[in-house]
Design a protein around this nucleic acid. Structure first.
Lengths: 363, 363
DNA sequence: CTGAAAGCGCTTACAG
DNA sequence: CTGAAAGCGCTTACAG
């Protein structure tokens, strides 16, 4: 009886001078005060239940929880945020031209916050602008962010992380090498990935493999090249510097790199471009030179973006578990207590997606 | 003197039992109370300045503004949100596989909120899940969103918009036809775009043009096909139904559609696929059949995604001003007073990006 | 034109 | 284990 009356009170249409002391106000969701009143406890005790404080008698807790469930009460994140002096927001900070990477990482982060009161807010920025760090800082301070996820390449910027610490904002770097506290990074194992490429090409019989590297300053460029070099050395394959050209992770730089490598004599029988965009540039050069892929030239990319499967022939490339990286990064911010330890390298491994762009060399 | 003391108070490092009554508390940003005290007015008056109320004497306003500027005071959006019973957040709701579209629209929306206290939060969803609308509603109610931007195809869902109205949440639909109040939509002129394709192909001399449509239920599919049909009719070019096949905006459906069209006798001399993904599928089919592009077959896509310029030969396609659509949509939420009127169709037009995938038919 | 009081929905000390 | 008071940083009535 009493129960159903309260229920009605919650759902009835908005009335003018609605009676305050009973039930839940019409036309709006229940608040902590409603729950407290209906459970005959103080709102502080309701707060303890919300925050899973152990200092609540089980019977009390159960009674309050029942009322919460009955009214579908959900605490207001904004109000909690104000009281906590910290918003329930996680920022995604990036300066990256690859849309697929951004969306995947974002969806990974959203997966982590699903069914929590957190939300993800995005903040693209331009690392070349002089006030780029100040801009990020304004962003995190104004919104009182819980933490931010830094995508490469700005995840490598120590000035940025210093500013974030000064602003009392947690951060997690998505990166390639241990350049910070384990609790503050998620490492994608690019060395392993790239070694897979080397082993694959060598196993096909290639001995003269061209390599198009990423931009000099980028950590990913360093890691990938080092991993490739190591793997080749381990299998006793020569890797002279003429086979290594510098790229910029852009299509155009892939074209330029491909032209340089394919002008070599003897030509490489395979080229590994350290991202898909550049690999697509090599496709173009091969096409222009009349070289068949994979007949005359094997090509491998890195990213497995939307491009890879659509090129002709479809391209063998490395798939990184980007979504999982995003999920792990967000979890480190949500659960800082569990973030420490030695879980710096993700348990997830990149892997080679074999398609149609490679075969044994002509001879 | 007094002035500099206050300044020092703001910047001095955090002290233990900091004196409250003077200056600004250490280690934290100024609040409305600090500004009120330092300007010798009530916080209500400061609030009036923040909210640009005309009910403030100019002299008072100027004095307060000076203090605000001096301390770089920025109101806390969370606190304002709580008091306004509405967050300074705009949601981006989508169910769309195209990462580039999402990122572009998002960056357009972010452009609109730059230098405001608003932020953008994203909410991907799956329109096939039965509780998809309930999920969006939970999202907007919990976060008390100011409004949401609905990307196609869910922007066409009236059940969704009804739920949003019931939740008292503003929305703007990115869409193709006037299916709502002008203040609630931003229209991309797909008909115009598609007519451009038709005119271009006809002007090259094509008279037998295949068309791969989008999924039947999609508004974009309807608009694009209608626009193409109209333009062809206006130029007196036949468009029999055998030349129109149904696709699903996916690569695979492009392959299937291409196979169907290229099995026709006589073959079409050009194919317009109503998005890039499907056009890439046609590339594959042409390649398999040994048809040269554009020698034996001209191809046009729609989207100008990252794929288009990377295909071989690079693909002629339609570029939509997606970023601008995002900016306009966000502005309609930020400035509802200006959103009405007749500005339903954006002033921005899509346009044809001519590359290397078309030429006059062989004969 | 300006302000003192009460409130948004929650929490942190502080008592008991 | 539970609660009354004060506060997070801002606003909305309501006075004057």
């Amino acid at each position: 009886m009493t129960r159903s009356r309260k229920k009605v009170a919650l759902n009835r249409p908005a009335a003018k001078g609605a009676s305050k002391p009973a039930g839940v106000k019409p036309g709006r969701n229940a608040t902590i005060n409603d729950i407290a009143r209906l459970a005959s406890v103080s709102k502080k005790t309701v707060s303890r239940v919300i925050n899973q404080s152990p200092l609540v008698q089980e019977a009390t807790r159960a009674r309050i929880q029942a009322v919460i469930d009955k009214f579908g009460y959900v605490p207001d994140p904004q109000a909690r945020g104000l009281a906590f002096r910290r918003a329930f927001l996680i920022g995604l900070v990036y300066d990256n031209p690859n849309a697929q990477y951004i969306v995947n990482l974002m969806e990974g982060a959203l997966e982590a916050v699903r069914n929590t009161e957190y939300e993800v807010v995005v903040h693209p920025c331009d690392r070349m602008k002089p006030d780029f760090i100040a801009g990020v800082r304004r962003f995190v301070e104004r919104q009182k962010l819980r933490g931010v996820i830094l995508m490469p390449p700005i995840s490598e910027n120590d000035d940025l992380t210093h500013a974030l610490m000064a602003a009392d904002c947690a951060y997690v770097r998505i990166t390639y090498a241990q350049l910070d506290d384990p609790a503050r990074m998620v490492i994608s194992n690019d060395r392993l990935a790239v070694a897979e490429v080397a082993n694959y090409l060598v196993s096909l019989g290639h001995r003269r493999i061209g390599y198009i590297a990423g931009p000099p300053g980028f950590r990913s460029a360093i890691e990938r090249l080092a991993g490739f070099r190591e793997a080749l050395a381990a299998r006793g394959v020569a890797f002279p510097s003429e086979l290594i050209v510098e790229g910029g992770y852009t299509y155009e730089s892939g074209v330029a790199g491909g032209e340089k490598l394919l002008a070599l004599d003897p030509r490489p029988t395979a080229i590994f471009a350290s991202n898909d965009e550049m690999a697509a540039g090599v496709y173009r050069v091969a096409n222009k030179l009349g070289l068949a892929i994979p007949g005359d030239l094997s090509i491998v990319g890195f990213d497995d973006g939307p491009l890879a499967a659509r090129l002709l022939p479809s391209m063998t490339t490395i798939r990184l578990p980007i979504r999982e990286l995003g999920r792990l990064a967000a979890n480190k911010i949500l659960h800082p207590e569990a973030a420490g330890g030695h879980a710096m390298v993700t348990p997830l491994e990149p892997h080679l997606v074999i398609r149609d762009s490679c075969q044994p060399p002509a001879r």
